[in-house]
């Protein structure tokens, strides 16, 4: 796995790596992918229907509105203001 790919994955993952870390990650990933590649030799195709758990419409949750959680508890682990989560300025 090359550095470009690792950088791309880091970007998708929203993770920062130093140059050093990227190199190590690339090396680790290369050996990990080697094991993963063993599955390429098997000739099987995923069949979503075979994973069907036979849930039907009637098995789904009934549409009933219940009380929500107090806003205070929703925000208790967050930086908050005005009953909202604080996010760095989002420029659109």
């Amino acid at each position: 796995m090359d550095l470009d790919m690792i950088s791309y994955l880091a970007k998708l993952s929203k993770l920062n790596f130093t140059e050093e870390e990227l190199k190590k990650a690339a090396a680790d990933m290369t050996s990990i992918i080697d094991i993963m590649d063993t599955i390429k030799e098997v000739d099987v195709v995923y069949n979503p229907l075979a994973d069907n758990k036979n849930m039907y419409l009637k098995d789904l949750r009934e549409d009933i509105a219940k009380d929500s959680m107090e806003t205070e508890k929703i925000l208790q682990n967050a930086k908050h203001s005005d009953n909202c989560f604080v996010v760095p300025k989002v420029v659109e």
Binding site: L57, K58, L60, R61, E62, D63, I64, A65, K66, S68, M69, T71, I74, L75, D82, N83, C84, F85
Partner: peptide, 30 residues
């Protein structure tokens, strides 16, 4: 099960599920 009504005070129609707290799971509405 939070109310799906329009509006409401900020973050007053929220629960651990719809705010994506760790460990919570979605249960689909029939």
């Amino acid at each position: 099960n939070c109310s799906a009504e329009f509006g409401g005070d900020q973050n007053s129609r929220c629960c651990p599920v719809c705010t994506g707290m760790p460990g919570t799971l979605p249960v689909i509405n029939q």
